[in-house]
Design a protein around this nucleic acid. Structure first.
Lengths: 189, 189
DNA sequence: CCATATATTAATACCAAGTCCTAAAACAGT
DNA sequence: ACTGTTTTAGGACTTGGTATTAATATATGG
């Protein structure tokens, strides 16, 4: 027994967690111990076999990639009256917060509001020209943000949209977006 | 022969590409054809076996997750003078543009500027209170955005930062961010 | 020092989801 | 009817395991 069981298991746990692609055989060599010992350790530590580990990774990221690819809009738009108003919901997940204090990064709230504002505009393509925004209070991990957008000034190709985002009825973000309809492939109309 | 070979292979290709977790057996059932036929098709189409598909997915995303986790900041900060100024670079990739016209979504430009503004502040945690921004001209797929941030008003816990983003020297985005230093776990200082 | 744990290794049977190879059917076109 | 493509079928072998049983080390308490 080179190193005590506990020590070895700590090592194994770490090794598998920062490289899940190691086979038991390889791990056995690394620890200078038989394959069976590694298997036993995995059992005790509740670490699944190679294929399962890989599969889980792939599955997790598959969803991630999916939702990212689908994410033409950040937040789920649940209601739209074109050129008039709209509502979207966005839940703050781990990937949206500062690891430090679990407060949402501002740009996600902005992205939700911006996406909604752009979605409301009845045009092939809409772009934001400018915006004024306020982060009223920090939003925390797990909170559900509901953004309400309302057009309050409508010209032929330019819309002004007010967006308020609330968590449990409490305003957390407020912004005014100046959005314009754009041509198929380019610049201002 | 239910459907012609070509047709079936088209189907198989699509099926595997939008759900890589299907076994040959399952696919065989779906196509009403034997397992061997599916294997032959896979050979011809150059589609690897289930485990390899899954492994590749996991491997690809392994790196991606890593770099994403590191992405505390959107865009690469290349220079920082705390409480004074900073520069970051951000290249517009496929995932940042509207599929339609390859113009960058506004919130990525915002995110770059916001991240930079927050990074400049010399504090455990900094949060954005408000911002006024202008998207001066649309930014296209492949363009390199260089954001220059400059603090122009500094109070004890509140900083005003001007951010200008340029592509080839041309201004594409401009914003003023009002950022404050926050306590470890929470609300305003 | 011996008995009893605990830890480690070995050995075997079995599984999933394949590969690789050979060979027999099925069917189509001419 | 003959040839060529397509489809099936079957068996041997591979990886990276699980599950189980049994033997052997090593340690620990009395």
């Amino acid at each position: 027994m080179r190193l005590p069981k506990k020590e070895r298991q700590r090592l194994i746990k770490k090794a598998f967690s920062d490289d899940p692609f190691i086979t038991d055989e390889e791990m056995a060599k690394r620890c200078g111990v038989s394959i069976q010992t590694i298997r036993l350790d995995r059992m005790e530590l509740g670490i699944p076999e190679l294929r399962e580990r890989i599969k889980h990774m792939a599955e997790n990221n598959f969803d991630r990639v999916r939702s990212l690819a689908l994410e033409e809009v950040i937040g789920e738009v649940i209601d739209i009256q074109l050129d008039h108003s709209g509502i979207s919901i966005f839940e703050i997940k781990k990937e949206h917060v500062f690891a430090r204090n679990r407060i949402a990064r501002g740009h996600y709230l902005f992205a939700q509001a911006n996406s909604l504002a752009v979605a409301i505009v009845d045009a092939e393509v809409a772009l934001t020209a400018s915006a004024g925004i306020r982060f009223v209070r920090p939003v925390r991990l797990g909170e559900k943000c509901i953004a309400y957008a309302q057009v309050f000034n409508k010209q032929s190709s330019r819309l002004q949209i007010n967006v308020q985002t609330k968590v449990n009825g409490e305003i957390v973000f407020q912004g005014v977006f100046d959005v314009y309809r754009a041509e198929e492939d380019g610049w201002v109309k």
